[in-house]
Design a protein around this nucleic acid. Structure first.
Length: 583
DNA sequence: CGGTGAACGTA
DNA sequence: CGTACGTTCACCGA
């Protein structure tokens, strides 16, 4: 089926929905399957192998805001075909801005956008997923994704929902409706929430590109680093056992009579340590560190842990599994975690040990342009709190210098005080300096206090960008204790979330701008690491890309804060290997 | 076989 | 100084 394109004037911001058959596990592998494209004057159902061409034409003539339920599914064929798209609206990400949390199914997003009770979502009946004869449905068109009571049917959009052209078109219309409602809701909730939904949506599209492109690796360098830490790649299970046993022997040799200890069992390790007089509540690194001199087995154990980490998690198996034949490390990316809203990545992309960084190297004819945001969290605090005095401090290259002067303390003390105020210390003492902060920057401190208090009261907080952060979540790792301890943990979480979350929003706005402004250079963003961007750039374009990264920060920070009062700084450099970075 | 905690890497 | 996430392993209970 072909689409007729109306010749109308390009209208900024008009929505065009793209939806791909929800049954497809991998929309890049099923060229015969269907997608629908619906917008003003457009209503087309096309085979996937014709989708990129149609979307490319519409993009060229109208630059609409491409709207989908989730980029990871609906935009996948477009990313695979490298269709450049300027604007998008990701319903799942917009829902995460509006409501928070991780769950963002079409059913939930739809209900929230339409003001329906999200605690009472219809559930698919266990007996028959496609039983459309329940009383709620009787009044509705049997082909519609909607129930008569206004909810989406529980099964639509799921892999089990069989589509035809009419159903897919209706699914695209539903996306348009849902996105319009979300936008209205966000606009009424916060002045910045619509802009946040835009940059979060762009980040979600970037995530699909990151998964497609991967992080360039020097395979030989990686192999050598892994061999140095974990030994050669075993060619048999017997050899693997032998290498493991040899690694274990480095530790067990220090404790004759206890060679049978399983070093991978923390309980047995604790017993082993106790037998040489090291009595500890746990065998964590920072607990054992003070005992390094007490008995040689402690140092040997800590060394063993490092090698074991490389061998098991970032070893030969990892290299073979996650680094493709094109020497790119790939993993799945998400634009927004379930807590404060950072990006996440799998397969080690976000927690690669620093010693493996020399293996992250630009490919032939390319370099990396790397940039990170300096002192991002205190600068964000200045922006989101509106503290004029603290904002004045951000005009310094080193924010802690003017803070130290204002508090009449040395720089390290000023830094610890600021970090303690933002994150909340439980041990140690920043005492006097903290009081100085309260005097010098009362507006910023009050902002943090309000978030903490809301957390204790279990009330949701909102980031500067308008993202709701619910506080009914179970906290990750609160040690058993009093109710007061849990209150304090929620308070710390909330206080951290409004800073970390706002920083994540600015970072994503920056990343989205970089993506848009460096595309013509042939640049690819290949890593997003919370406050750091790694961009793979054809060598001749390196300096231009570096300039644009810095300019993109000025642009996105000005748009995000709505002012120029707070200064954000990026340290940008051109590298061949990630390890060449200063810090 | 799925969930949990310990441990540790990153920011 | 805290928060968050991803990965692996051993253990537990079904």
């Amino acid at each position: 089926m072909s689409a007729s394109l109306p010749a109308g004037d390009p209208t900024a911001g008009e929505r065009v929905a793209v939806v791909v058959d929800p049954a497809l596990a991998d929309p890049t592998q099923e060229s015969g399957a269907l997608a629908a494209v619906v917008g003003p004057g457009i209503s087309a159902c096309v085979r996937l192998d014709h989708l990129a061409e149609l979307v490319g034409e519409i993009e060229a003539s109208r630059r609409p805001r491409w709207t989908w339920w989730a980029a990871g599914h609906d935009a996948l064929p477009l990313v695979a075909a490298r269709v450049p798209l300027a604007r998008c609206w990701d319903i799942a990400e917009a829902h995460r801005v509006a409501v928070g949390g991780w769950d963002a199914s079409p059913q939930l997003a739809w209900a929230a956008a339409h003001g329906l009770d999200t605690g009472a979502l219809p559930r698919a009946s266990a007996g028959d997923l496609f039983d459309f004869d329940s009383p709620e449905d009787s009044a509705a068109d049997p082909g519609s994704p909607l129930r008569a009571d206004g909810y989406l049917r529980p099964d639509v959009g799921s892999p089990a929902w069989p589509v035809d052209e009419a159903r897919l078109l209706a699914w695209a219309h539903a996306a348009l409706d849902c996105a319009d409602r979300q936008e209205a809701l966000l606009a009424s909730a916060s002045t910045r929430a619509v802009a946040t939904a835009h940059s979060e949506s762009a980040a979600a599209l970037l995530c699909v590109e990151l998964a497609r492109d991967g992080l360039p690796v020097d395979r030989d360098a990686a192999t050598h680093l892994i061999e140095a830490a974990a030994g050669p790649r075993p060619s048999s299970e017997a050899q693997a056992r032998e290498i493991r046993a040899r690694r274990d022997a480095q530790v067990l040799g220090h404790v004759p009579g206890r060679e049978a200890t399983d070093l991978r069992n923390p309980l047995q390790v604790r017993e082993l340590l106790a037998s040489v007089g090291v009595v500890v509540p746990s065998t964590r690194k920072w607990v054992l560190a003070p005992f390094r001199e007490t008995h040689p087995v402690v140092e040997a154990l800590l060394q063993w842990r490092k090698a074991e980490r490389i061998a098991t998690t970032y070893g030969h198996g990892w290299l073979a599994t996650h680094v493709g034949a094109d020497d790119r490390l790939r993993g799945a990316w998400t634009a927004c975690d379930g807590a404060a809203g950072r990006m996440t990545a799998q397969n080690g992309l976000h927690n690669l040990p620093a010693e493996l960084r020399p293996a992250i190297a630009a490919h032939r004819g390319h370099v990396f342009v790397r940039a990170d945001l300096g002192q991002i969290e205190p600068r964000v605090l200045a922006a989101v709190s509106g503290d004029r005095a603290f904002a004045a401090a951000t005009r310094a290259d080193d924010l802690y210098a003017p803070v130290a002067a204002a508090l009449d303390v040395d720089r390290p003390t000023a830094k610890i005080a600021v970090l303690a105020a933002m994150y909340g210390q439980r041990s140690g003492a920043a005492g006097e300096a903290l009081k100085g902060l309260e005097r010098a920057y009362p507006t910023a401190m009050a902002y943090l206090d309000r978030a903490y208090a809301a957390g204790v009261r279990r009330q949701p907080v909102r980031t500067f960008g308008g993202r709701t952060i619910p506080l009914d979540r179970t906290l990750a790792d609160v040690p058993p204790g009093s109710e007061a301890a849990h209150d304090a943990a929620r308070g710390r979480f909330a206080r951290n979330a409004v800073i970390q979350g706002a920083a994540a929003e600015l970072f994503k706005a920056w990343a989205a701008t970089v993506r848009a402004t460096t595309r013509d250079l042939g640049a690819q963003i290949v890593l997003c690491l919370h406050d750091e961007l790694l961009v793979h750039v054809p060598e001749p374009a390196a300096e231009e890309a570096q300039d644009r990264l810095v300019a993109a920060l000025d642009d996105s920070a000005r748009r995000w804060t709505g002012s120029t009062q707070v200064r954000f700084v990026a340290d940008a450099s051109i590298l061949r290997r990630w390890s060449e970075a200063k810090d």
